[in-house]
Design a protein around this nucleic acid. Sequence first.
DNA 1: TTAAATACCATGATATCCCATAGAAACCCA
DNA 2: TGGGTTTCTATGGGATATCATGGTATTTAA
Lengths: 152, 152
Amino acid sequence: MALFAGTFENKVDGKGRVSLPADFRAELPEDAGRFVYVFPSPKDDALEACDKPFLERMAAAIEEAPLFSEEEDDLGASIIAQARKAQIDETGRIVLPKDFMEFADISGKAVFVGRAARFQIWSPDRFEAHAKKARERMRGRTLTLKPKGGGQ
Amino acid sequence: MALFAGTFENKVDGKGRVSLPADFRAELPEDAGRFVYVFPSPKDDALEACDKPFLERMAAAIEEAPLFSEEEDDLGASIIAQARKAQIDETGRIVLPKDFMEFADISGKAVFVGRAARFQIWSPDRFEAHAKKARERMRGRTLTLKPKGGGQ
DNA sequence: TTAAATACCATGATATCCCATAGAAACCCA
DNA sequence: TGGGTTTCTATGGGATATCATGGTATTTAA
């Protein structure tokens, strides 16, 4: 499974073109027509992106409707409905749809944020503010991640 | 599972290159494209590093929180989003990203500290101070460590 | 037939690969 | 067991490939 990690800032040109960070591209299968799915984040003022397997996983979750609340069902449906396929060109760039750029307030530069199976695309300013808040919340929170197989 | 043990000090050259201690390299699987994930420690003023399985376990732990929830967001943002893939070259070196070197105040030399499933990378000075404090805390404290899996 | 979207080159900066070397450790064989 | 030899580790430096980015040409669509 693709594992997107790290944070990268790239330029967005007048055509809405932006390079996908090389580390992210490396996580996508060589063969398959290279593309990612992009959709507005249901929670943040940013865009989310993922590969096909991840979107399929979400779709599968929706199929099992009884297991999920109506809320989750709606959430999944709206994601699928809004998701757009973004082709990755020869030079490793995708084109951000205009309405998506407006939604996320992106112009000039975009920040790519790895989130394991998916990644986000932020306006640099908004990301800065958001990251700051997240750090503050983390401060109070004890880090008790216990990876199986025993961390420290 | 990888088991990193011991403490080693290596040079960091102008390009940010530093040799991974041979003992650490030996813990990484031959086959898989050799690399480690590096990220700023959430606790210390140092860098942490681990192999892919370990990061995947952390990602899995984070995903136990509902997708798009605040908790998932904070944890993901603080670890996955910061982790960067560091390729290990033919001579056994990795490149430390500039911003990471700044964060950990590393230049010239770096100290590798084994921490079982992961390891840390310190500035020699900071590590010295940190180790001293740790020794002081240990004094007067009863050691109660119980190896899991018990009887020999 | 224009505007927009897409595919196709060009380029500087950076990162990666590759070779070279000195020293340390392991080896080995009488 | 000692000396000689080989191997591996850590490190330096230069050559090369890749990345991100800008621009131009060509296709598609309205």
